[in-house]
Amino acid sequence: MKGAFAEIVTTLSHLPGVVAAMIVGASDGLIVETSPMKGAASGGADSRKHTAALAAYLYSKVTRASDAARLGTPAFMRLEAERGQICVVGARDVVLVTIVTTDANLGRVRLDMMKAARDKP
């Protein structure tokens, strides 16, 4: 299982524009598997733990909003910020989270994240 998760984050992190890819516990927000953060200064503050916890939390709230609107389970969540984006896809007990640059190929990121979520062991 751990090997399969490592493969997923490695594949996602190699996509153009992906700064980091993570698999995060859906209920606890803890990182299960993560890629290194591209461009992060050695010894600098690592924001992955914060991003993972808050992205999983946000996704759980989005799921509730989607349920309330009778839209079913959200397929893909994208948060667009000034200097990049956060993409989240639910995969049962975990969520896949990627941090991507503004110029990333979002279509490819979305497709590969959804494929990874579908094929997740």
Binding site: G29, H50, A53, S60
Partner: peptide, 11 residues
């Protein structure tokens, strides 16, 4: 409870 998570509490 479920309104939060361990990860969120930790950070």
């Amino acid at each position: 409870d479920r309104e939060s998570s361990f990860g969120v509490v930790e950070i």
